[in-house]
């Protein structure tokens, strides 16, 4: 094994040990001295990165590529279409009410975010900062997050039926809004804990009530966290299938994942159109993913790693 630092009196090479400031940067990247080693390492890194990128882009690329394939090309098994056939897209939109699905998905997801944040932010603050409910409530929320959503499916189905909210966007807003509360709690947790307790205390001593302190001091500091949490919850709701497919029955309330999963389940479905419909359904989330990347990563990492 070679060492990174040459011994002072190593007889192999006459050079004496000198402190080099570059050595300090070795922490992150271990750079072998030899030019050859560095080259080999760079090649390895590039190949590894290429493999990673190809693997993670492959299905998406294939989906988009298939959406431009003619029925003949689809069964051909090649990656790219032999001839670009754009017809699949308009046909997919004509076959399936994709616009309604998309509208339903966006409405359900967007409004559910407000429900989730409305419930979760204040509750997170009250539980963590004012220590209401001690550790019992946080533990309950954690437990409810561990519990699989299928537990709530049947009871919620019956409840929604009684409330007359089955097959409605309002019902899905309510379901998603409440379902994402544990996630939001988990994501908001570290943000809330980062707001120093002394700020609340300063506000109390300044005469602000607990509510005023929350709304005038804590809440403004949590806006970034709320945006990140809101985006993540939006995507979770947008992508959700289990509840949506059990509780929505027609194109006035069905969401994209339900609509597209049913479309792909039909017997004589055209693969090209299916791919086009799926691609269309992905575009809104990718839009968010690319433009709000910073918020999403920030939200995920703050919540996930203390």
């Amino acid at each position: 094994m070679r060492t990174t630092i040459q011994q002072p009196n190593s007889p192999q090479n006459g050079e004496t040990f000198q402190f080099k400031p570059e050595l300090l940067t070795l922490s992150r990247t271990w750079k072998p001295k030899a030019e050859e080693g560095r080259l080999r390492k760079m090649i390895f890194v590039w190949i590894a990165l290429a493999v990673i990128v190809i693997f993670f882009m492959l299905p998406i690329a294939y989906l988009f590529s298939t959406s431009f394939k003619s029925p003949v090309d689809v069964v051909d098994g090649s990656f790219f279409p032999n001839a670009v056939e754009a017809e699949n897209w308009p046909r997919a939109f004509a076959q399936v009410p994709l616009w309604s699905f998309m509208r339903n998905s966006i409405l359900a997801a967007a409004f559910s975010v407000f429900v989730t944040l409305g419930v979760a932010v204040m509750a997170t603050y009250a539980m963590l900062k004012l220590e209401v409910g001690k550790s019992f409530l946080p533990d309950m929320i954690l437990a409810s997050y561990v519990a699989p959503p299928i537990i709530a499916l049947i009871p919620m189905f019956v409840l929604m039926q009684k409330l007359g909210l089955l097959n409605s966007i309002a019902g899905m807003v309510l379901i998603y809004g409440l379902m994402n509360v544990p996630v939001a709690f988990w994501l908001m947790r570290s943000f809330v804990l980062q707001v120093p307790k002394a700020l609340d205390e300063a506000a109390w001593l300044d005469g602000a009530s607990y509510f005023k302190t929350f709304f005038r001091v804590t809440l403004p500091l949590l806006y970034p966290a709320m945006i990140a949490t809101g985006l993540i919850c939006f995507i979770l709701s947008f992508n959700e299938l289990l509840f949506a497919q059990a509780m929505t029955f027609d194109s006035d309330s069905r969401t994209l994942p339900v609509g597209i999963s049913l479309f792909q389940g039909e017997r004589r479905v055209n693969f090209g159109q299916m791919a086009a419909a799926s691609s269309a359904g992905i575009i809104p989330v990718y839009f968010i993913a690319l433009f709000c990347q910073k918020w999403l990563i920030g939200g995920l990492t703050q919540g996930g790693v203390k």
């Binding site: 882009m57 792909q264 359904g281």
Partner: peptide, 15 residues
Amino acid sequence: ILLPLMTPPVMVGIA
């Protein structure tokens, strides 16, 4: 690398 994570699982399945 964020893209797969954001993709609706139904679309992942179809792909």
